[in-house]
Nucleic acid binder design. Structure first.
Lengths: 330, 330
DNA sequence: TGGTCACGGGCAATCGTTTACCGAACGGGA
DNA sequence: TCCCGTTCGGTAAACGATTGCCCGTGACCA
């Protein structure tokens, strides 16, 4: 079932069929009529592969995320997907499993599939550099949430400094005078930004704990483990966590250790994933506008696809404080 | 940068380059050597689109899920992705947003992109029928978790009857004598199966509540709402929820209403998503082997791709009971 | 009436691979 | 020496669309 069959059925040339179906050049209404009828009489569906070969555009964009099972990422993916399918592009989704090598392999696969553009949430601010560079050399790239150091492409993210400040201010208002941070090692830009912001803000407010920092990765397991480690010493008034997943793990092990949140210690997360409100107590956190992040990334990429030049864009969306029981109110 | 350039650089024909690079026909070692050298001197990367046009196979499989933000689905996607990239295929992921119409549109897009096969978690047992049929007429299809009624394709899922029985037996052992079910309307096969199993099993054990059933959809909001509704009447000893997401919503509104779990009522979920263990109390649930489900689906599809005939396969994987605090133990 | 132009349609080249077919070279058996 | 089979490389035709170029028709104007 090709355009040739439709042409034959309609008694016109393949060129005409193509024109009717793609609308790239006007065709007289009656001929168009005939073609359309023939087309859906035969149940014809365009072969996008052939079209892509000819037009040098596939209508697909690749996306690489570090861990699809961390709910922060699917939330962004959802926003991207929704925005893309509007002008019917399709998403080729890959998981780099947090490894720059796997990331490189996925990238190669996507590039040889001729994706029109790429959305990358890179896995490491340093080792992902060559990947991002290679990608950007081939097609338009938008980095999301995390940016590698040394390669500027379009970027969509939020201001982590502001987020941390919101949390610390809120905690101080809730009575906290000493802090600890449980986060991920600064191998990604948000981890770095949150760490530095924490140190700076805590020091600036004259409270204690700017140097009390436990670093692992963005996982439950790390949160759980860090919680166990925390309870061996004197507790700070408040523990800031690098993200909600860590915080939820931490809440679990604090509970197991008999530490009461928020009575004995206040706890906060970051991201506001769907489950942050469902723990007990609910998690005070910084809400990232995930679906906007996704949508905005897709829009930025679309803009690059239609008009490739212009200065690189950097969209910093606003985050907001989401107060729940883990910092006092039930 | 095409195969032609490589051929020129190596001083051989394009046929030879193709043979060396794809290994589809033997080539003398020294010529192969020369070609390989030329190839990576130029940094050549095969154009998969052109190859696909010629070979009639794209090396991509499409996957349609109802809601990528329900963590049950990404967990399956992850399993699929991992299995697929092994024999380097790529995943084209779509979200049907729970609508059969959107599902149909995504399906068309995937088919015209010439996917080699499809993995479908359909959104409605009845209205998705035509979609699945159309898909199955074009390419190999594996249905996952949910099957439409009236079209048999390969299928991977779990036994919901067994799961419900595990829960009820456990609850009875924990002392429950009256039950209620909060689940989704039976518009998908698991919802139907769980509902019917619930009614059958509860009736068979001679306990109360086989007809006490609240049906909505698989969402937090519904769980929350159902919880509010439940507390207006006399509570049963135990509430079974259709999935964990509902259960987590329910736990929240029970807590808000001052109902203590597990003291006043026992609560169970279904699926064992990552967050089921992180609520307070932790959620007793039926663990579905999500990554195995994903991996097995990908394997089944792969089998169909290499050898298309043979009877349809139906893989029912084992689920296990996961006991946590919501049914008694802390 | 002749010239110009817009319009609408067809022919065939093209995108970058793979692969059916062909032919040269070579070795070995009769 | 001749013939046959095998091996290995090249030539060119696909795959299924899009599109540059061309041409015939008819309208319009001078």
């Amino acid at each position: 079932m090709t355009i040739r069959d439709v042409a034959q059925e309609a008694g016109v040339s393949t060129a005409t069929v193509s024109r009717v179906l793609s609308g790239r050049r006007p065709v007289s209404p009656d001929v168009a009529q005939v073609v359309l009828r023939a087309s859906d009489r035969l149940g014809y569906r365009v072969n996008v592969v052939a079209r892509s070969l000819r037009t040098q555009a596939t209508g697909t964009v690749g996306m690489i995320v570090p861990h699809i099972s961390n709910p922060f990422f699917p939330a962004i993916v959802e926003g991207v997907e929704r925005e893309l399918t509007g002008d019917d592009r399709q998403l080729l989704l890959c998981d780099s499993q947090g490894s720059a090598d796997i990331e490189a392999a996925r990238l190669s696969a996507l590039l040889s599939r001729q994706v029109d553009g790429l959305l990358i949430i890179s896995c490491d601010a340093v080792t992902s550099l060559s990947n991002v560079q290679r990608a950007a050399a081939a097609v338009p790239v938008v980095q999301i949430d995390r940016s590698v150091t040394g390669c500027t492409t379009d970027f969509v993210g939020t201001d982590n400094e502001v987020g941390i400040r919101l949390l610390v201010d809120h905690l101080i208002e809730a009575g906290a005078r000493s802090f600890a941070l449980v986060s991920a090692r600064p191998t990604t830009s948000p981890a770095t930004a949150r760490l530095e912001a924490y140190q700076r803000v805590v020091a600036a407010t004259g409270t204690a704990g700017a140097e009390r920092v436990l670093l692992g990765d963005f996982s439950f397991e790390w949160g759980t483990q860090a919680g166990r480690r925390l309870v061996t010493g004197p507790l700070p008034d408040a523990v800031l966590c690098g993200d909600d997943v860590i915080a939820l793990g931490l809440l679990g092990s604090l509970r197991d250790a008999g530490v009461r949140v928020p009575l004995d210690v206040l706890v906060t997360g970051y991201d506001d994933i769907g489950f942050a409100g469902l723990s007990n107590p609910g998690l005070t956190t910084v809400r990232q506008p995930v679906s906007q992040i996704g949508a905005e990334s897709a829009r930025l990429l679309r803009a690059r696809l239609t008009q490739t030049d212009g200065p690189t864009q950097r969209r910093i969306l606003a985050s907001t404080l989401q107060v729940r029981g883990s910092t006092g109110r039930a």
